[in-house]
Computed example of a mutant assay.
Amino acid sequence: MRVMPNGIELRVIPPTQGKYDLKIFAKLLDSKESYTWVCSYQVDCPEPKVHDRLPANPFSFWGLHWTARCMGISQCSCSEGLITAPDGCALLHFQTSRPLSATYKLIHGDYDSDVSKRCIVSQIGEGKLDCNIVLLTKGYYRLSVFVKPYSQDGSYQNICNCLIYCPNLVNQNELFPANLSNHCGPGIRTKEVGFNQASHPEPVINTPHGKCNITFQTVRDVEVTATLTRDEASAEGCPLERHTLCTHTKNKVSISVSLPASGVYKLGIFVRPEDEEDFGHVCDYVIRCSAESRGPPFPRMYDTWKKGCVIFEPRSGVLPATKWVRFRVRIPRAHRVFLIGESMDELSLSKSRVWEGNVFTGPARSQLKLAANLDRLSPMIRDDVLYPR
């Protein structure tokens, strides 16, 4: 049933063949009186069209509620209440006239709440709310949408209920990572911390090569870090934290990702303003990797690797043994830069203010550390040396 300012639209889906009596009851909006019998119909169903179980709807309407405009929603891609998802994927889009927070609830007879939460990715942007949905099985689903004014206390209000139909048996879709925030992808929160012009405007990134580079233009002086997680246990030798590399120059932040295996990952981005002690969460990205090859980890970065530091080569944190490797890095305020392994090699400063030089990696299972002379000699990054290749 769709409730509109000047009427209702009622869709009847008989479960089996036969005749049905349909009685309609109504009352004035917000009235405390009981519903009154308005009219009756006889519905004759010679052949049922639906063989899948419909989800229950505890709310009194489907589609977008007629008061949605008063709540700040000007348009919805599911205004009629039905979405068909033949490939098991759907996108629900709202246009908003003012900033809103949103939460979603997906209902299916075979899903518990933990599975349902992993079917949804929420993006809260300026002038829009987006909900990416992935479905695993054939059948009908109910998606209920709840909103409230952004950054205000108070309860969420149900504003839309969509019936989603997946007509095909879908076995290949993977769930999204667990514990995603409502702020996925760039949106209101990224703009609040001064991040603009995101290279990846969508919250879900598909990479066939196992690598991606997410960039933002920045207008505030902040420190950036990122965390990479996946729900499945990893058998890789390096921790996942070694598979992300944050680079922050004067007005640009780059978060490079090199994934160790195929699968679905959650990338969390955090920032710390210059005048604060703790990092705060900004947004999450979902990264789907279909690459068969393993991406190498990045070098291990020490706390001294700060804003303005850039590593051009080598980007891999695992180097072949007994090989000459070219190093090129930029380190602001550095007087001298060294590579420390079995010996200490000094890099030279080029005209473009890049420290560079060729360094012999040494034997297998050794380590190379890059150190810079700022006020004192400080370790900056570390590379691990593998067996000869």
Results as ranks from 00 to 15, higher is better:
1 M>D: 06
2 R>P: 08
3 V>C: 11
10 L>W: 10
16 T>Y: 13
18 G>N: 10
20 Y>W: 04
21 D>Y: 09
27 K>F: 10
35 Y>H: 10
37 W>N: 11
38 V>H: 06
40 S>P: 06
42 Q>W: 08
44 D>I: 13
45 C>V: 06
47 E>M: 13
48 P>H: 13
59 F>K: 10
63 G>A: 04
69 R>S: 15
76 C>Y: 05
79 S>P: 01
79 S>H: 10
83 I>A: 05
86 P>Q: 05
87 D>I: 02
92 L>T: 10
100 L>E: 12
107 I>A: 13
114 D>C: 06
116 S>K: 00
119 C>H: 02
124 I>E: 07
126 E>M: 06
131 C>M: 08
134 V>M: 02
135 L>T: 03
145 V>E: 09
149 P>M: 04
155 S>N: 15
160 C>R: 01
163 L>F: 01
173 N>L: 00
185 G>W: 02
187 G>C: 01
188 I>S: 03
192 E>K: 10
194 G>P: 08
205 I>N: 07
210 G>Q: 06
215 T>M: 12
219 V>I: 15
220 R>H: 11
232 E>K: 14
235 A>H: 12
235 A>L: 11
236 E>A: 11
237 G>Q: 12
248 H>Q: 12
250 K>R: 14
250 K>Y: 14
254 S>K: 12
272 R>G: 00
274 E>I: 14
277 E>M: 09
282 V>K: 03
285 Y>D: 07
285 Y>W: 08
290 S>N: 06
295 G>F: 10
296 P>K: 09
311 I>G: 03
319 L>W: 03
319 L>P: 02
322 T>W: 06
337 V>S: 11
357 G>T: 02
362 G>I: 09
366 S>D: 06
370 L>F: 01
370 L>W: 03
371 A>G: 06
380 M>T: 04
381 I>D: 01
383 D>L: 15
